[in-house]
Design a protein around this nucleic acid. Structure first.
Lengths: 182, 182
DNA sequence: TATTGTTATACTCTATAACTATA
DNA sequence: TATAGTTATAGAGTATAACAATA
């Protein structure tokens, strides 16, 4: 008993039948989750795929720049890049002009994986917009793009990387020592 | 040096101008982030607000049921509920019929906070769909709802709670012991 | 024996702050 | 002195697995 609501809903309007904001958050999380599942088939996490795409667009940048773009501290970027380098997907090259810097590049194998990544992305797009006509899909994309613009979201950068698992689970062995200049 | 791409983009179509799937993930993360900021003004996290709303809709359910709905293990739910109970927002009542169960209820204060929560939600909705006409907003909401339906997303449940900070940071003191039947 | 609530533990992930080498 | 990269460490957050009480 007590003086709190006992079973009936309190007076006032019923909860709105789910507005656009909530639907966006819900669908966005769902889209990210689904995409992560597809990426797992390529043994990639979303941040890893983000780096690969970044390197395809602008190769040779420094680790710090890339870490900034991905929204992670440079210290975290090291192990993050280590794993991809061990797998032969990316490559560090000393910058001769400024020997403090590493230029990070995609390897040939990394480039090939990027192709698979594009395919996964396209399939994901289809799966997610399933049930919409071509016209409706365009309509939706247009509205979303306007919202993203209005909200100041830079195209192609996913803010959620900040709080995302950076490595695939089940990393059995420790990182192989790759130190040279120490 | 090396046989990898040296600066030009590889052949093939340029990256698509950001499809609907990516925009959804991006906007969804943005919406969640923005909402979390507004929630912080009420000293609430998204999962906490989720529980409050859950309790408003169906009071008196057991901790296990609620934990399941929120997508967290029951063990985690304990501390989660402890904090809200200490703050006087929710209340545990023994179920006399089955003394293993606690009925979880909203307190009066919790109900009052829920009002503020509704207001924040409405403002958030406006802020996020800013720049759209009323007709466009309806259009967008309709499309999103159809997608959510098609994807099998239950209305009102946010899958992202699973991987979300459950408590507000800067908890200075430890939890006050509230044990009685031990 | 099964289930709810709870606690304890061990583990993962993270940021922070040092430290090295280059500039 | 400042900056890129790196390592070490300490802290937060988590799931898992025990445990107690009740059924």
């Amino acid at each position: 008993m007590g003086m709190t609501n006992e079973g009936e809903r309190p007076p006032g309007p019923p909860p709105p039948p789910t507005g656009a904001a909530f639907l966006l958050a819900q669908l966005g999380a769902h889209a990210a989750e689904l995409f992560a599942e597809r990426l797992a088939e390529l043994d990639l996490t979303p941040p890893q795929s983000g780096l690969l795409r970044l390197l395809a667009d602008s190769p040779g940048r420094s680790q710090r720049e890339l870490a900034d773009d991905l929204g992670m501290p440079p210290s975290r970027f090291v192990a993050f890049a280590d794993e991809l380098e061990e797998r032969g997907l990316i490559e560090r090259r000393r910058n001769p002009a400024d020997r403090r810097l590493y230029e990070v590049h995609l390897t040939d194998e990394g480039g090939k994986l990027l192709e698979g990544l594009r395919k996964v992305g396209a399939e994901h797009e289809c799966r997610l917009t399933d049930g919409l006509s071509g016209q409706e899909r365009d309509q939706l994309t247009g509205l979303l793009r306007r919202l993203a613009d209005r909200q100041g979201l830079s195209p192609g950068v996913h803010p959620g990387f900040r709080s995302m698992r950076t490595e695939r689970t089940e990393r059995t062995g420790r990182r192989a020592g790759r130190r040279s200049g120490r």
